[in-house]
Design a protein around this nucleic acid. Structure first.
Lengths: 154, 154
DNA sequence: GGCGTGTGGTTCAAATTCGAACCACGCCGT
DNA sequence: ACGGCGTGGTTCGAATTTGAACCACACGCC
């Protein structure tokens, strides 16, 4: 192991800002969503992914790695959403083991009611605070970071 | 409520990258820290804050809002660290209610052992992936985001 | 056909998180 | 000195998260 290259002040500033912004923003959005529509941010994300797909359905595994949680966490959350009637499970015809999560009509409606407030919050707290150049830098830089993280999880 | 201003593709790209990078990075660092030194990222952060202060001590409340967690979460984590002998509690002389968390010698040693690996990971996964311009943009942009979030939590 | 190996999901126990309720005490006006 | 209010921390219960263990099945290869 070589000498440790500590973070210089500029690097430290970026790292701390990233960390703090992520944590605070997540917390805030979670609150906003929960009191606005009763959904957690995680649940909201699930509904969004589903709604982005034809027929509003997606395999559990695809959901799991599109998202953040462990597989067991997904099982739990889909269970919650199912109890709430926002999602339905359907077994995959071609592979008995496979399970689709399907957005119900109620789910789609709730999502449509929740989305405007959520988007407004994201805009107010993040997007509209950044200059267009900063937005691009974040999209490019963190996009690359994400790509590598996904690649390196083999 | 005015018409919803949805996110355009560029904005969406930034938002998704930010979200994904935050989640993936946090998870990865957590794993790295845990198998490297047995600390969670949250615990590591606590130790870092303490070590950054003279005598390695800090009031619970100061810790709480320097960090991310709720107050109860902090109580819990400090409890864990105390059980592990990395931190000690000391009641504040001037205010009986107040409690200092104090870094023990063992805590400082563990932190010093854990830091190099952690910094290396942060560097590899985030800092060194970004161009200097992107780093600055992130530091500035997300710094401002953080400032507003802290201000608006009144 | 029959057997290892790998996948897709779920279940389980344990750890963590959060907010709300709570206690004990300082602070301040009277 | 006294009573009410705000603060600093902890406790409590409920919800969530995670990794590991676990089934049931698909697949490839003999």
């Amino acid at each position: 192991m070589a000498e440790t290259r500590w973070l210089d002040p500029s690097e430290m500033r970026a790292w701390k800002a990233f960390l703090a912004a992520g944590a605070l923003l997540n917390r805030r959005l979670d609150q906003q969503l929960k009191e606005d529509s009763g959904l957690s941010h995680a649940q909201y994300e699930i509904l969004v992914r589903l709604s982005a797909h034809p027929d509003g359905e997606l395999r559990m595994t695809e959901l799991a790695d599109a998202l953040i949680n462990s597989k067991s966490g997904l099982t739990y959350q889909v269970g919650q959403l199912e109890k709430a009637g926002l999602v339905r499970r359907r077994s995959c015809p071609s592979d008995v083991r496979g399970v689709f999560a399907v957005l119900t009509e109620a789910g789609r409606e709730l999502l449509e009611r929740a989305a405007p407030g959520h988007v407004a919050a994201v805009r107010e707290l993040l997007i509209d605070v950044l200059t267009p150049e900063q937005r691009e830098a974040i999209a490019d830089g963190l996009g690359e970071v994400t790509r590598r993280l996904r690649a390196g999880s083999a």
